[in-house]
Design a protein around this nucleic acid. Sequence first.
DNA 1: GCGTTTTATGGGACTTGTCCTATACTCGCT
DNA 2: AGCGAGTATAGGACAAGTCCCATAAAACGC
Lengths: 193, 193
Amino acid sequence: MSLEHAILGFLEREPMTGYDLKTRCFDDAAGHLWTADQAQVYRTLERLSERGLARSRVFPQRGKPDRKVYRITTKGRAALDGWLHSAQPLAPVRDPFLVRFALADGLSDEEIAALLAEAREEYQSRLDTLRADAAAPVPTCAGADDRGSELYRMTLGAAISATRTVIDWIDDATERIRQGLPVAKQRPTSEGV
Amino acid sequence: MSLEHAILGFLEREPMTGYDLKTRCFDDAAGHLWTADQAQVYRTLERLSERGLARSRVFPQRGKPDRKVYRITTKGRAALDGWLHSAQPLAPVRDPFLVRFALADGLSDEEIAALLAEAREEYQSRLDTLRADAAAPVPTCAGADDRGSELYRMTLGAAISATRTVIDWIDDATERIRQGLPVAKQRPTSEGV
DNA sequence: GCGTTTTATGGGACTTGTCCTATACTCGCT
DNA sequence: AGCGAGTATAGGACAAGTCCCATAAAACGC
C-alpha cells in the first residue's frame, strides 16, 4: 500500500506524531494526492513500529495528551528507498462519477446535464483550492527543502491540469447534450425471466 | 459503493450472469472507469439478490457449469434510479504515482527522470488501449442502444483526455528535471531520537 | 495425448479504508 | 457556567477490495 510508504516518506523528512501526519501532511499538503483516515494513520504507525521501520518515543505534555513522536529507522529508510526504486503498477482507474454518467442513459437529457453541472461545481471548487495552494508557500511537511518543494509544486501542477481537463470535458459533454442525445430505445420494464 | 450500482446498471440493460458481468462488462467495457474483482462481483450479486434488488434463475448447461442469470427487479430499478438522481460526493484523490513522485526528493535527478519515463510508458499503453477501444464498435454491454453508446463513447473520451493530460504533464516534468532540480539540503542520516 | 484456455461458480483469508466512539485536559466564546 | 474547538491517542465494527484456491467439463493448440 501507498499510505505506509507515504508515511515513511514524511517521517524521513521530519519525525512526527500521528496527529501531525494526519493534520499537517495529509489534510493540508498531500490531500490532493492521497487522503488518509486518522484511525488508519495511527494503525499504520503502530505496524511500522512493530516491523522496525519506525521507532516512537513519548514526550509528556502538560494539559495536552502526550505526544508520541515517530522517527524513521535505518531499516525504514531502506524500505522507503526500495519502494522509490521499484517499479510500481499503475493504479487501476476508478471513477464513480464517470460510471454514473455512463449508466445514466435512463435519465433525460436535462437530468444528465444537471448531473454534469453538479460535478462541474465540485471540480471547480477543487480547482480553486488547488490554485490557492499553488499560490501559497509550500507547507513544511510537503517540502523539506527546495528540492522537495519543487517536486511538491510539480505534483500540485499535475493535480491542477488533471482537474482542468475534467472540467473542460464536462463543458464539452454539456454542449454535446445541449445538441440532443439520441433517444433511448423502448426497453421492457418487467416480464418473466 | 459504486460497484453495486454499476452492476444494477448493467443488469438494467440486459440480464446477465456474474461471469458475463466480469468479462464482458468490467474487463472489456467499463474497465476504463471501474475495475472489479471477480469474487466481489459474485458476492455483490448475492447481496443484491438478498436485498431483493435482483433475482436469479439457474439455466442448466451441458458440459459447462450452470448459468445463474441475474435480472434486475422493480425494487432494483428504483434503487438504481435513486442513485442516478442523488448527489454523489466527489471521489477523493488517490494517486500512488504522484505520491511517489512527491516523496522522491531523496533520489537523483536521473532516478526521478527514470521514474517518470517508466510511468509514461504505462500511461502511453493505456492510451493506446483506450484509442483502440474508441475506434472499435461499442460493446453490447456498454451501450444497449444509441443513447447508451453515445454516453459510453463520451466517457471513453474523458478517459483519453485524462490520460493524455497525465502524459503531457510527465513530459513537462521530464523537461523540468532535465534543466536540473534544486539540490537537496544535507539531512542527518541517523542520530538519537 | 497433454497442457492450457474458456466457461462458470463460489469460498477463505486477508488488506485497506471508513465511521463512530472514548478519553482527557485547555482555551476561548457566549 | 457551560459548550464547542483544539490537541492527542486509540479501539471496535464494518465495508470494500484483492488474492488465492477448488471444482468441472469441453475445446483448442502443439
